[in-house]
Design a protein around this nucleic acid. Structure first.
Length: 615
RNA sequence: GGUCCAGUAGCUCAGCUGGAUAGAGCAACAGUCUUCUAAACUGUAGGUCGCAGGUUCGAAUCCUGCCUGGAUCACCA
């Protein structure tokens, strides 16, 4: 579809400076050194790691694995290898050996030349996608249209959106997509409740967002349904049976059959109530800052799914039971039997997901399709892959389930049918309110108009929320305590935004004084310890990005941002930039500050977090 | 019961393709603003890395067993 234009853009070709280059050189040199001594080509792995902060150096060679081969002690090996590397690699300034660790320190000139490379590089670390780049489809959000979005959806949306930014930045063509679960028994429940007890109410009349109004009726249905079940149980029915025979449920099931049969009355109500919900969702999506390239509706895809199942039935890949239901037997693959069509012929969840996958493949011929869906559906996606393989789709193994953990409240799991949820809208509003209170108290935004101030508070509030959620490894469960508001100090979004604001402030002041960032740095001033440490952090960005894309983890980006911000603040605390009398030192610090700001902004954009000029 | 995931400081989390004395933040305590933003910086205190074995020169990291918590195994989505 609309990727056509992008496909034709020329790919910029330049060398991205980063640590990988020098690491490769060191590896090669170690291999050469060892081979020279043993007289045989060395094929083992060279183990490099970043030098820990308490030791002097930039990069460390772990020499233990070489000890046996060389028949020397760890200390001797380290000393010998250190001398060899210093002699052969001009980038290496000095070395020291602690136990079995060879710490190498780069020359100041190396770091200066790295900063000069950085100065010449736009969009450092980002790879542009070309028309041959892998096509990655990312599905996230996937709401039901019977209730408002809650905290769980917030995590889903933030992970999905961030991941799409990360994949794009890593050089993939990316399609953000959403499947709207707009049909099914749960929707009928809300519709039925509205018919029975709604008295014709609308969002306008109620003065309520449409998604909340519809959600109210869903809760109402569950309440009334539970009453019916209790009554039946009181009349002597076993609970299991009562749950199946309650009149309200039978009515909802009848409504689903009428919907699927195309009953105009049901369809009209369905369209109307869905429209209310979409209007509500749009507000929430906008507030969260997420969007989609293409939206699929289950009400369309289930038909494709049914077709697929019927064709498979003809081919004998699945079978029909006596009661008319259609099943796939996956026991050979270590799974169970799975229903694909109910005995009344209606579709189930799996049916529509088959259809959606096929539609998407036809639309995009993806190389990878990532489903951002909670870990409660691990089994579903396991079945989906196996089933699609069985049905003869060779690309089935390109379907990846990015399974993330649940968001729980201190009192336990959220339950929307009981109304025990943290609504996304309320949560966002609360975060912005907290940001406003703190901001007003600090009073650093004098001189800004009300609208500008509001925008700053909005960005900070959302930054805190997004960072809080994204810094945690997706697969872990989160316990969220709404009463203890999310921190705005320490390892938080606002901390990083604040660091950026500090940097911007330096440049605002600098402009007033006519200070200009140099085009290039000379090598007559060499960076001190904190300066080269910060530079080293910046040099890691491309590798961090690649790692995050590889492991589908926005958390790696978040934690990297924190390290950079912390590194900058330590440097900033100890050294002055604008007031530095030595012009050469000032120039280097200007470059360092500018590039730190750029990288922080770029990296935070990958999390969907906006920076602020002041705070 | 089967399968999958998690268990690291009081709390929230990093670290997990094996490598140095297990790191941050919050909370607690003690310092640092006439100098580019103190939403910052520095320090103190806080750990049997769930438990027990095993592999290894070396294990929070790998293997086995167990314990705890969560998810799932529906003609719900």
């Amino acid at each position: 579809m609309h990727i056509g234009g992008q496909m034709l853009t020329l790919q910029a070709i330049y060398i991205l400076p980063d640590m990988q280059e020098i690491e490769k050189k060191i590896e090669d040199a170690v291999v050469a050194a060892v081979s020279e001594v043993t007289g045989e080509p060395f094929t083992g792995q060279v183990l490099l790691q970043e030098t820990r902060r308490e030791f002097e150096g930039d990069i460390t060679v772990v020499v233990f694995p070489l000890v046996k081969l060389l028949r020397r002690s760890p200390e001797q090996t380290g000393e010998w290898l250190g001398a060899y590397l210093k002699e052969h690699l001009p980038e290496i300034d000095r070395y020291n050996v602690v136990k079995g660790f060879l710490n190498l320190a780069f020359t100041g000139a190396y770091w200066v030349s790295f900063l000069n490379d950085l100065l010449r590089t736009e969009d450092y670390g980002l790879k542009k996608a070309g028309d041959k780049s892998p096509m990655v489809v990312i599905e996230y959000s996937s709401p039901n249209t019977n209730k408002p979005l809650h905290l769980g959806h917030v995590r889903n949306n933030l992970i999905g959106y961030s991941l799409s930014r990360i994949m794009a930045a890593a050089g993939n063509r990316v399609i953000k997509t959403n499947i709207v679960n707009d049909r099914g028994i749960h929707i009928c429940k809300s519709m039925l409740a509205w018919q029975k007890w709604g008295n014709g109410i609308t969002p306008e009349k109620a003065g309520k967002k449409g998604d909340f109004l519809v959600g109210d009726f869903y809760v109402k249905f569950e309440q009334e349904y539970r009453k019916e079940v209790e009554q039946l149980v009181a009349q002597g029915l076993p609970e299991e049976e009562a749950k199946k025979k309650a009149p309200l449920l039978l009515e909802a099931q009848e409504m689903l059959r009428r919907w699927e049969a195309g009953d105009p009355e049901v369809l009209e109500l369905w369209k109307r109530m869905n429209e209310w919900v979409y209007e509500g969702f749009d507000v929430t999506y906008k507030a969260l800052g997420v969007d989609f390239d293409k939206i699929y509706y289950e009400s369309d895809t289930y038909k494709v799914g049914k077709q697929i199942v019927l064709e498979a039935l003809e081919k004998g890949l699945v079978y029909r039971r006596d009661d008319g239901s259609v099943w796939a037997d996956l026991r050979d693959e270590g799974l169970d039997e799975k229903v694909l069509l109910r005995s009344d012929g209606t579709a189930v969840y799996m049916t529509q997901d088959l259809g959606t996958a096929v539609l998407r493949y036809n639309d995009f011929h993806f190389d990878e399709h990532i489903y951002v869906v909670g870990n409660e559906q691990n089994y579903h996606f396991q079945v989906l892959r196996v089933l699609m393989k069985k049905l003869g789709y060779p690309w089935a193994d390109r379907l990846i389930h990015l399974s993330y953990g649940m968001v729980e409240l201190p009192e336990g799991k959220m339950k929307s049918r009981e109304g025990k949820v943290v609504d996304a809208d309320d949560l966002i509003a609360g975060m912005i309110e907290t940001a406003r209170e703190m901001g007003e108290e600090l009073g650093k935004l004098e001189g800004l108009g009300e609208e500008e101030k509001e925008e700053v508070f909005r960005r900070i509030g959302l930054g805190a929320l997004k960072y809080f959620i994204l810094k945690i490894d997706p697969k872990k469960n989160i316990v969220f305590n709404p009463r203890e508001s999310i921190d705005f100090n320490g390892n938080t979004g606002p901390f990083i935004q604040y660091t950026y604001a500090r940097i911007r402030s330096v440049f605002r002041k600098g402009e007033e004084r006519g200070v200009i960032v140099p085009q290039t740095l000379g090598s007559d001033y060499l960076p001190n310890e904190k300066e080269s440490f910060l530079t080293r952090l910046l040099a890691r960005f491309p590798m961090v990005l690649a790692d995050a894309a590889e492991t589908d983890s926005p958390a790696l980006i978040a934690n990297y941002c924190y390290e950079v911000a912390k590194g900058f603040n330590q440097f900033y605390h100890d050294y002055s930039i604008l007031n530095e009398p030595d012009a050469r030192a000032r120039d280097l610090r200007l470059v360092l500050a500018q590039k730190t700001g750029e990288i922080l902004r770029t990296a935070m954009e990958l999390l969907g977090i906006e920076m602020v000029e002041r705070m």
